[in-house]
Structures are given as structure tokens and as C-alpha cells.
Design a protein around this nucleic acid. Structure first.
Lengths: 189, 189
DNA sequence: ATATTTAACTAACACTTGTTAGTTTGATTG
DNA sequence: CAATCAAACTAACAAGTGTTAGTTAAATAT
């Protein structure tokens, strides 16, 4: 149907530049130069700078949404569900560290799609919160402040894009299990 | 000496705008409008847009540096030192959530001061890492991957600027103690 | 061979960017 | 009262912004 290949090359390159300098600081001429073409030529493949950002962010946000929906529907324990959430973040982030930077830092520059993104994000946090609450009820998780637990864990998972590239020695399984262990059991001896 | 008041008003307003849209997306005209004056009038008080960013970020980075230097020199246990690091982050971030957004997201737009910032940042991480290593040696902290522990805790602390404004019900002491407990002991029952 | 498609190009646009120069106004100080 | 000064203003700049229009050249399909 469409020339998906070239468009996706542009989006990937854009994601890399967005990670380095942020969406607003990257010009279409920067992006073109990184692709080895002229700025105007980009418009044979994409409709606007905005659209590039949208494609990067929304597809990732939808991946997280469908991921957590699978996890919540399983009959595993709450702790096991948390493990799976960690694995979900490690998996998505490993495949696209550049895009995750945009999702974390440039979502406010979405325009028409901003309400949709915020909805996905808020739904995700709600599902995560529900899993924690369920764990407390079932006596698997300490009865501490749910919001502090939620944002503490989520902050770590959302920052993964920053240090996965620096930790290439650990593979995904090792990283997931170390991380789960620290998030769930802490660092106290 | 100088008219510190007006300049600092500008810097505070800028920090708020930088948090909402990022440094690159905020124009001097945006900033002027938020101050109720014209863009050119800003230059009676500041020398450049760059300088505003520098003042926001470097002063915060230096606060962290001097904070951790005090902590490392104490003769407390490693776990107590960790508690103090958490308190340091909560304290600095509570006083300046806007500025912390710039420090986290816009440091790459520092120009002449970038090497200095990176040095402060890397020193801070080293001191933090040393405290963790010391804790492992003294058998206070589990002998797990130091880098995973470091970045897990630091990610949470660095994200504080995002959710402290949403958690105004908790005061600093409560927040610090909840957070320390979760970071150190985890959420497992 | 001809027609179509893909993907590049040049040239230009209207607008926005950070910043400078020079001026005015109202308050404070000598 | 005169002089100074802080802090605003208008006007303008050169450079850079995203994007459009129209064209060209090579590859692919008919």
C-alpha cells in the first residue's frame, strides 16, 4: 500500500534526534541532514513534524496499554503480575529506547492526540494501581501508601530508557529479575 | 549591588514555563507575556535565554553536590545515609519543582556550562555509588548489582518533581519516611 | 516502449526566533 | 529641584522555522 520502509526510517531517525535534543529543538533540516536528504524531501513520506511525534508516542502508549490488559486478566498472584509489568517495560524499552525518551519528555507537544494520550496514560496508571491494591487486599503487599508505591516503581520503570543503553552487559531476563527483586524486596539485608 | 529581585522573578517564571513546555519550546515572548512585559524588556535584567537556564540548573546541581558531601562525611550507617539522601532530594525538589524539571530534561541545552554540569552530575552519582558499596561491605545492604540499585533509587528520586505537586497532602517528613521505607525495604510483605 | 511511481531536488513563502539599539517614564536620591 | 537609575517601551535585525509548489531523474510495471 504505502512505502512503509522509508517513512519508518525517518521516524526512527527522528526518535534518535528527539532523544538527544528534545522534539522542539530538532528542526526538519536537522532531521533531513541526518537522513542525507533535503528538508523538503521529507514531505514525500510524512505529512508534518507533528505526525512523526504522534507515530512515535501513540504506538508505544498503545503497546503499554495492551500489555497491561493482558497482565491484569491473568490469574497470577499480584507479585507475579508486578514481575510481568517490569518485564513489559524492559521489553518495550529495550526495543525502542529512543522512542521512550519522546514518550517521557515530549508528550506535551502532541496536539490533537494529546487527550487520547492522556487517557491511555491515566488508564495505565489505574490498572497498575489496581494491581497494587489487589496485592494489599490479598496480603501479598505491605499496606503502605499506594500512591507512593505506584509512583516509586513507575518512575524507575519510566526511566529505563536512560540506562538500558548503558547496561548492555545485562540481557533482558537478567535485568528484569534484578529489577523486580529490588523493587519488590528493597535493598535492605 | 544588582536588582536581584526582578531577575529572580524572571528566572522563577521561566522555570515554570520550562517545566510545562521544555526550554526550547518557550520563547522569550512567551516568557515576557507571562511577566506582563515585552520581550525586549527582559534584557534589562538578564543577558540571554541561555543564562536563565544556566542559573536554574547549575544552582540546583550545586545544592545536590554540597548536600551529598555533607552526608558522606558523617559517621552514620549506610542505611541512615540513604535516608538522608532521600531527605535531600525531597527537600530540594519541594522548594523548586519547576527548576528540577529543567535539570532533568533540559540540561543538554546548557552550552559553555555543559561540561561543568556533567562533572557535578557524575560526581554526585559516584558519591551515591560509594555509599551503596560501603553498605554492601558493611553487610547492611544486599550484595546485588550496584548499578541497578543506584539507578533504580535515583530514578525515583529524580522523578520527584513530577509528583510532589500532586501529593500536597503529605508533608516532607512523611513523604521522606514513606519513600525511604519503600526504597529500602521494598513492598513485599 | 510507455506510463507510472518513488524519492529526490530547488526555490520560495510567511512567520517566528533571540537579540540589539535607542528612547521614555516614573520613582528615588543628592 | 536636578540628577540618577531602574524598568519599561517601540522598532528593527538577521537568521532560522515548518511547509508548499513545482520539477527532475531513476526505477518499476504495463
Amino acid at each position: 500500500m504505502k512505502q512503509e520502509t522509508r517513512k519508518e526510517e525517518i521516524i526512527k531517525t527522528a526518535a534518535r534526534l528527539f532523544k538527544e535534543k528534545g522534539y522542539s529543538a530538532v528542526t526538519m533540516r536537522d532531521l533531513a541532514k541526518a537522513m542525507g536528504i533535503k528538508a523538503a524531501s521529507l514531505y514525500n513520506h510524512i505529512n508534518s513534524k507533528q505526525e512523526i511525534l504522534k507515530e512515535i508516542i501513540i504506538s508505544l502508549a498503545e503497546e503499554f496499554t495492551s500489555g497491561i490488559n493482558v497482565i491484569k486478566s491473568s490469574d497470577k498472584s499480584s507479585i507475579e503480575k508486578l514481575n510481568e509489568i517490569v518485564a513489559l517495560h524492559v521489553s518495550i524499552t529495550s526495543k525502542n529506547t529512543y522512542g521512550m525518551a519522546s514518550l517521557n519528555n515530549d508528550w506535551m507537544h502532541l496536539e490533537e492526540q494529546l487527550p487520547y494520550y492522556l487517557e491511555l496514560r491515566s488508564n495505565y496508571e489505574n490498572e497498575f494501581r489496581n494491581i497494587l491494591k489487589e496485592g494489599i487486599q490479598k496480603n501479598e503487599i505491605i499496606n503502605s501508601d499506594v500512591e507512593v508505591m505506584l509512583f516509586s516503581i513507575l518512575s524507575t520503570l519510566r526511566s529505563l530508557y536512560l540506562w538500558i543503553p548503558k547496561k548492555e552487559d545485562l540481557n533482558s531476563e537478567e535485568l528484569t529479575s534484578h529489577l523486580s527483586s529490588i523493587l519488590i524486596n528493597g535493598i535492605n539485608k
